[in-house]
Amino acid sequence: MSSEEILTGVRRIIGEMCPLGARDVAPADRIMEDLGYDSMAVVELALVLEAEFALEPIDEEQAIDLVTVEDVAELVGRMVSARA
């Protein structure tokens, strides 16, 4: 799966699940500040992404700040690569 495909998939899911209502989202949109996600919504989003991309924990990941849509796509990409 290419990074472009991952970004497209992540944007679609984040947009569909947006607490402010479904919408198109841009890579630079901030998950919490711009799109209205709170901690519960972030947990739900993570679980949906895990199911969609068959993600598993990766050793090198720390609890980093996932600020933008692009940050999330980049993390998903790293987790997909680690799985392969």
Binding site: V42, A46, P57, A63
Partner: peptide, 16 residues
Amino acid sequence: QAVPAVKTALVFRAAQ
């Protein structure tokens, strides 16, 4: 309990 693989989400989940 759901244990998110994404660690940021896991930290949120634990806090909840």
